[in-house]
Simulated scan of single mutants.
Amino acid sequence: MLIDEALSLFVGHQYSQNRSEHTVIAYQTDLNQFFRFAASELNQEPEFLQVQEIDLYIVRSFLGTLSEHGLARKSMARKLAALRSFFKFLCHKEIISENPVQRVASPKLGRKLPHFLYLDQVWGLLNAPDESDLLGCRDKVILELLYGSGLRVSELVSLNRDNIDIDSGILRVMGKGQKERVVPMTHYAIQAIKTYLTRRGDQSPVLLLNYQGTRLSERSVRRILDKLVAKISLEQHVHPHMLRHSFATHLLDGGADLRSVQELLGHKKLSSTQVYTHLTRERLKEVFSQAHPRAKARNIKKKR
């Protein structure tokens, strides 16, 4: 089977599995890069490449070339994940009999801790919008939902009015893989939404609108956040997902259990949530200092 035909089948399958548009496009980009490399290795044009011609050695050579060009391990792992999914699909459909990626080891990745904001930084940011005008009221809603409910920016901009139950204080959010979850809202978020919608006074079903009256985009949210960060003179770069990181970190630091935070974030795997436990060390040290006899004895001596 020709590569183009196999890729078309694979893309259709990804959409049928409710993969996001971003994921499918990323897979296509990585796979097309690999196909061009494989065709070059086999001295033929990419459009004439057959999936049956690709073997383990071409895959390893591809990864080796990426490494020689200094590609980060995380990016290599992403490209390898695309290849795994593609050839696993072809094996399942019995288009190929052997998976050329099966014996390829994934590059070892160091765990990168998420960046977050401290409480005083969050408070400063939440108070940054000018609520005397409509757009400032909207920006207040953006911040209160990103931080107060831990939403992804994609989830935020896709919200409609009927996703919000003001009386019960909950949101129905469509997360990754078109999986819906229910998330509570803070009192501050509820008040911000009420104020914003009252000031708007229209009947649009969309929650967050731009100045033209159409749905706010993810890029616009990032620009709004950049302006608010500059307004309060925060030195570090703040992106929308950092508010989600802060949401999870502050919950765990405040004593929330890991499973509850996992459910609030909509994580499929608990390991995805465990990266946020780094700040709880300080809380554990405080508990230890207050509860352990030897630690308490040291504290008594300090008081004397």
Rank of each mutant, 00 (worst) to 15 (best):
F10H: 00
V11Q: 07
Q17G: 03
S20Q: 03
S20Y: 01
Y27R: 10
T29I: 14
D30L: 07
N32P: 04
F34E: 10
S40E: 15
S40T: 14
E41N: 08
L42V: 05
E45L: 15
E45R: 13
E47K: 12
E47P: 07
F48A: 15
E53I: 01
D55V: 00
L63I: 06
T65K: 14
H69F: 10
L71F: 05
R73W: 00
M76G: 06
K79G: 07
L80Y: 01
R84V: 03
S85M: 09
F87I: 04
K88C: 10
I96F: 06
V101Y: 00
Q102T: 09
R111Y: 08
K112R: 12
L113N: 04
L117W: 06
L119R: 12
D120N: 11
Q121F: 00
P129R: 04
D133H: 13
L134T: 06
L135I: 11
L135T: 08
K140R: 13
K140A: 10
V141T: 02
G148A: 08
G150R: 00
G150Y: 00
N160R: 08
D162M: 13
D162W: 07
S168E: 15
I170Q: 11
V173M: 10
M174T: 13
G177N: 02
Q178P: 00
Q178E: 12
T186F: 00
H187I: 14
Y188G: 04
I190H: 02
A192D: 02
S204W: 05
V206G: 01
V206N: 07
T214W: 00
L216N: 07
E218L: 04
I224K: 01
D226S: 14
A230L: 13
K231R: 12
S233R: 11
S233Y: 06
P240S: 11
P240Y: 09
L251G: 03
D253T: 09
G254D: 10
R259I: 07
L264I: 06
G266K: 01
K268P: 00
L270T: 08
L270M: 10
S271E: 15
S272M: 07
Y276S: 03
Y276G: 02
R281N: 14
E282T: 02
R283M: 11
L284N: 06
R298K: 14
K302G: 04
K302W: 02
